[in-house]
Amino acid sequence: MTSEVEVVHKPAGPSADIQRSLDEDSMVDGPLISADALYSAIRREFQTVPTPYHAGLLSVLHVVYVVLSVCLAVLCVLKAGQEEVCTSILGKVHGDSVIVFGKVALWALVLLFTGCVQHHHSRARSRGYLRFYRQMQGLKHLPLTVHSSGNVLLLVVLAAGLSPNVLTYMLLSILGLEVLVAVPCLLYYTVKVMRFNRERAAPDVSQEEHSRNFSVTSMPTETGFRECSSLEEVVEKQADLIEYLKQHNTLLSKRLLNLTSQH
């Protein structure tokens, strides 16, 4: 009886360890996927942000509107000898009213542009480009802020009851100030987004993983708490990161299956 118990509890020998290692190796048969392959696969599927074309078109329309407004004010409002031509084109509508209507239409285009930019930037954030989304957070709303401020100044000028000539000069001054501020902002935004599209960088998490794998002195990630960062900012960053990681895990599983089948 004692010998049987000893046989049951006898520790496994070297042959059992070898058999166990062979069984474990059989579970991971197939080619291994390198980190470079996954990184390059994700990099190839980079989706550009198409808003530079919208920003360029909006800049051109803004400049054209200001030039036409100045011509209309000089020829039709300030009475430069073209009253008959203005009457035949505008009819009974006053020149200042046409400029104001154009201002409203331009503001509506800027509002539409801001909504389009917000949509594409939110898609970029969902793809993991959190740093780019935060860098452009204030810049993408700046043109709408400038035009809305111009509308407020225009309402104040219209409510002041100024003489027609003074009103026209004030209106042109507001339009000139807007174009001097809004167009450079749009151009700067266009340069930033075009640079982002040209770099075709991997998502932030992939960049951090890649830098930790191939750099000895890699910088720490920004997902933790820092002394100079507020709690709300940390929570917001972590929420964005969790949302991206859910989508990234699904995408990465598909990449593993595709690359394994190719090898």
Rank of each mutant, 00 (worst) to 15 (best):
A160L: 13
C228G: 11
I174V: 11
T114E: 04
S173P: 00
S218D: 12
L172V: 08
K254I: 00
S261H: 13
E45L: 15
P203V: 03
R44L: 08
A12Y: 10
A80R: 03
V64L: 02
A239S: 15
T48P: 00
A35L: 14
L130I: 15
A105L: 15
L61R: 13
S126H: 07
S122L: 11
L111A: 07
A182V: 10
V193G: 08
H248C: 02
Q19W: 13
E243F: 03
D240N: 10
Y65N: 07
L130S: 12
V183N: 00
L57W: 05
Y188H: 02
L130C: 13
L72W: 00
Q82M: 12
Q207K: 10
R20D: 10
H141D: 14
G115C: 09
L187H: 03
A41S: 06
L75Y: 07
Y65W: 15
S88F: 03
H147D: 02
N165A: 12
G161M: 11
T250N: 13
Q82H: 14
E199S: 07
L75D: 08
P50H: 00
D36P: 10
Y129W: 07
T190A: 08
A202H: 02
V157R: 01
A124S: 12
L257T: 13
T145L: 09
C185G: 05
S3R: 15
V183W: 01
F113S: 01
L144C: 05
P203C: 06
E45M: 14
Y39M: 02
I42C: 05
S253N: 14
E178V: 06
C116G: 10
S3V: 14
P143N: 04
V193D: 02
V191K: 14
Q207W: 06
L32A: 12
S21N: 14
P52E: 00
V63H: 11
L259M: 02
V156R: 12
V93P: 04
H94N: 02
V235Y: 03
F196V: 01
S173G: 11
E178T: 06
